[in-house]
Design a binder for these strands. Structure first.
Lengths: 168, 168
DNA sequence: ACCTGAACACCGTTCAAGT
DNA sequence: ACCTGAACACCGTTCAAGT
């Protein structure tokens, strides 16, 4: 399951050495299969985020979390489109990731860094969006970074720092 | 062609009263077909944007343009994913829309409202992203508006107005 | 020259038969 | 009870035959 990105279900079954029917009984929906396939990876993502969040400001932690989510969704073709559903399907790593995201968002909003009218679903939505659009890009492109940075700027409460003096 | 969103090519051909082979010869790629199907609509979009741009500030004009593009890409299922390619395919309305977008972006950047490191491709990319993610949403949802607003905030040069006083 | 649609290839899904 | 994979349905694409 590791590499075979958007292989046909037939190939997945063959590679897992089971019949296609058995595959269907274990994973009734495509989302269930995807969820199981990347569950471990999501667990790691959540854990790394928790560790990082102990060191940096909430807003920053949320940004890096978003970026990690985008990159995660880009690993398996076909995952991005159903990221929202996969995260909700409840398997352990999905749940951990959702929990961590909710936690970071609350913290960042409480600290006044991030707009209070943002929902976690919007974060997932953005991660999905960036993954989907950059999927066709050349592999090592800079667009992911640029889009993440743009998105994140959109999340920030206005005038956080005024890196240059404001005009007139 | 008007309504049949993501119908099979077979149905498109049948509806157009031609053989499937003829359809292929007229439109060798899916993008060519999509481009032709929405060309008129894109012409209108570009024209309306030009009229609007005469009345409002460049940044504002660019935002409304982006929103229109998002809504356009949401009309036909399957268009969003290839919006970038479709816009480049060169048919009249596509060309007009690209021209108008480039023009608005230049103006908005020259006026200092919009970040100078944004490319038109990024705008298209964002429109694609929002369309793709909101495609699965309930029809009348508010998410499109919220995401467009977020995106656009990300485009803006910092501290444009300082709606509230900056902190300490 | 142009059009047609049967034919082929591919993939997702089901379900009768086997163990 | 559980597994299997042939069989069915569907869609995209091509190309030999017809006009």
């Amino acid at each position: 399951m590791q590499r075979g990105a958007d292989a046909s279900l037939d190939e997945v079954a063959k590679h897992a050495q089971v019949g296609i029917g058995t595959l269907y009984r274990h994973f009734p929906t495509r989302e269930a299969l995807l969820g199981a396939a990347c569950d471990e990876r999501l667990s790691e993502l959540a854990q790394q985020s928790r560790q990082r969040a102990a060191r940096v400001a909430p807003g920053e932690a949320l940004c890096v979390f978003l970026e990690a989510l985008v990159r995660h969704a880009s690993v398996y073709r076909g995952l991005a489109a159903s990221l929202g559903i996969v995260l909700k399907n409840g398997s352990s790593g999905c749940h951990a990731t959702t929990e961590e995201g909710l936690r970071l968002l609350s913290l960042a909003q409480a600290s006044g860094e991030i707009r209070s009218d943002i929902a976690f679903d919007d974060i997932v939505c953005m991660a999905t969006a960036i993954s989907l659009t950059t999927a066709q890009d050349a592999p090592g492109g800079r667009r992911i970074d640029r889009l993440v940075s743009m998105f994140v700027d959109g999340l920030r409460v206005r005038a956080p720092k005024a890196s240059r003096g404001p005009r007139s």
